[in-house]
Amino acid sequence: MEQQVGSRIIQTFHHFLEYYQESNLACGMIIARADLNAKELEKLKAHMERLEPEVGVQFSHDQTEGLVGILLDNRTIGYSHFYSLYVKDFLEENGFLSGSILVGSFPESSPYAEQMLFDMVSEIISENGPQGEIRVFKKENNKKNDSILIVDSDEKVLELVTSYFTHKGYTVHTATDGKEGVAQYEKHHPSLVITEINLSALGGYQFIHHIQHLEAVKAAPIMVLTNKQLEEDVKRTFEYGVSDYVTKPFSLMELESRMVKLLQAVHS
């Protein structure tokens, strides 16, 4: 859920990453656990530009989470790692460093640029390593890297599912109507979609139809979680190629086990 890891870094880099994703150009990404303010960030920037003047680089920081994000234009994982050594030295010398550093690159580490940054930020927040450690981010590194998109107009359902599955180690994205659902899907490419049929803006069926016909990406399995109990709806959703149908009121345990089964099928 964006709000939960709503780091400023993600917002700052959003447009850049969208661009890299679309043009399929490479970019390096460094996320460091460090406490510095805007002025100190400028210092870091000046320092790095002196050391490595050749590279196109963007800096961003998130003071509330204590994070620094660095985006390297057209660089591989190898170079990004090399660059991060300088960053570490600077941060350590000035006493800014408060944890580990995570290095990744698009498309080497992950085929989805924005999702990669998102995962990197949530990883460094959730499991901060020893100070000064530099880790290379790999998609497989995460125990359960699976992300879920849940679409429902009922905020309470979103809240419940998000807190439960985030706790279980999944990344959860949410949307409150069909249109927003499509946007979130295109942005995050989740491994599984859970959706209500009663949706505004774009109805549930249209939403399902739409994401299954998005070109370039193989659609994630879709699970329906709905108030609708009519046989016709069950029939129709399965005809649309939906993988599972759960009616409300629902059990989180049941939902999870059905989900796990679907995700296993995806991975195998």
């Binding site: 107009s153 069909g178 009663n198 949706l199 505004s200 803006a201 774009l202 109805g203 249209q206 108030n227 609708k228 109990q229 009519l230």
Partner: peptide, 9 residues
């Protein structure tokens, strides 16, 4: 669109 998406069985 909004009529099709009404919450109704």
């Amino acid at each position: 669109r909004s009529l099709l998406a009404l919450h109704y069985p």
